[in-house]
C-alpha cells in the first residue's frame, strides 16, 4: 500500500480496470439493449445485437472474474498479530473483506448520520477510514455503495442467466443444456405471475436493466453532484489515490502513533 506523503492508494490498478470495464460494458449493454427492446432507429437490430453480445462477455469478465479477484486480493492494514501467528491470517482476511464490502452496523450508523446531515443535525461522515499506523484502509466504500453491492451481484446474476435464455433457448456448454435447465426453473416460477417461462425471463432481464439504470442514477448522481467530483474522477480513473488531509472524506485512525 503506497502512502506518498499524505496520499494513499484507495483504488488499485486492477480495481480501476474492473470499474472501467464494468462502466463501459454496462453503458453499451443498456443502450443496445433498450434499442432492441424499444426499437430505437439509430442502429439496426443486428448491429445492436452484435455489440450487445460482445459487451455482455466483457460485462461477465468484469463482474465474475475481475471483481471477485479484486475482492479476494484487496489489501488490508498490516496486522502484527497475523505476522506473529497470534491469530489466523485467513480468518482476519475474510473478516476484513466482509467489513469492507458488506453493509454492517457501522454503515447503518453512517447512513443515519448522512440523513441527519440533510437536516443540518450532524456532520457528513467521512466515507473512508484509513489506519495511519498500519498503512491501510479499514473502510473504503460509501455506505450506499455497500448497500447496493449484494443487490448488484444478484442483479448481475439474474441479468446474465436470463440473457442466456434470451440469446438462445438451446444454449449449452460442455454438453450441459444450461438454457433448458434455466427454462425449466422459469417454467416453475413463471405461472405464479401468470406468465410462461420465456416472457418471465425477458421480464426479469428488463427489470434488471432498469435496476442498473437506477443504480447508475444513484451512484453517479451522488458523486457527480458533489463539489469535489474531480477528486473522485482522478482517483477512480487515473491515479487511484486519495488525499488523506481531506477530513471531510477520510477519517484517520492510529494517526498519533505515526507522528
Amino acid at each position: 500500500m503506497a502512502n506518498k506523503g499524505r496520499h494513499a492508494e484507495r483504488h488499485s490498478f486492477m480495481e480501476r480496470m474492473a470499474h472501467l470495464t464494468h462502466l463501459i460494458s454496462l453503458f453499451i449493454l443498456l443502450i443496445t439493449g433498450f434499442k432492441i427492446y424499444f426499437g430505437w432507429g439509430f442502429m439496426t437490430y443486428h448491429t445492436a445485437l452484435y455489440f450487445h453480445m460482445r459487451f455482455a462477455v466483457m460485462f461477465i469478465v468484469a463482474n465474475w472474474i475481475m471483481i471477485p479477484y479484486n475482492i479476494a486480493t484487496t489489501e488490508l492494514p498490516h496486522c502484527e498479530m497475523c505476522k506473529t501467528g497470534k491469530h489466523s491470517a485467513l480468518k482476519h482476511k475474510v473478516s476484513g473483506i466482509f467489513n469492507r464490502f458488506i453493509f454492517g452496523p457501522a454503515d447503518a450508523k453512517k447512513s443515519w448520520q448522512i440523513m441527519l446531515n440533510y437536516v443540518g443535525k450532524a456532520d457528513y461522515p467521512a466515507i473512508t477510514v484509513y489506519d495511519v499506523k498500519n498503512k491501510g484502509y479499514v473502510e473504503k466504500l460509501h455506505p450506499a455503495t455497500k448497500f447496493l453491492l449484494p443487490i448488484e451481484g444478484l442483479a448481475v446474476f439474474l441479468i446474465v442467466v436470463t440473457g442466456i435464455v434470451i440469446y438462445s433457448l438451446q444454449w449449452s456448454i460442455l454438453g450441459l443444456p444450461i438454457s433448458q435447465w434455466l427454462l425449466a426453473v422459469a417454467d416453475i416460477i413463471a405461472p405464479i405471475f401468470n406468465m410462461g417461462g420465456i416472457p418471465f425471463m425477458r421480464t426479469i432481464h428488463l427489470l434488471m436493466a432498469y435496476f442498473f439504470v437506477i443504480e447508475v442514477i444513484i451512484h453517479v448522481g451522488i458523486i457527480e453532484f458533489d463539489p469535489k467530483v474531480w477528486k473522485y474522477h482522478k482517483a477512480v480513473f487515473l491515479t487511484g489515490e486519495e488525499d488523506l488531509n481531506d477530513s471531510n472524506y477520510v477519517k484517520l485512525i492510529n494517526a498519533e502513533k505515526e507522528r
Binding site: 446531515n117 440533510y118 421480464t203 432498469y210 437506477i214 442514477i217 444513484i218 448522481g221 451522488i222 453532484f225
Partner: peptide, 25 residues
C-alpha cells in the same frame, strides 16, 4: 408492471440524488 416499477424507482433515485446534491453544495 416492470415499467411502473422502473419509473417509480428512477423517480425516487433522482429525488434522492438531487436532495443529496443540494445539501452537499
Amino acid at each position: 408492471s416492470a415499467g411502473t416499477i422502473a419509473k417509480v424507482g428512477a423517480g425516487v433515485a433522482v429525488l434522492g440524488v438531487a436532495a443529496h446534491a443540494a445539501r452537499r453544495i
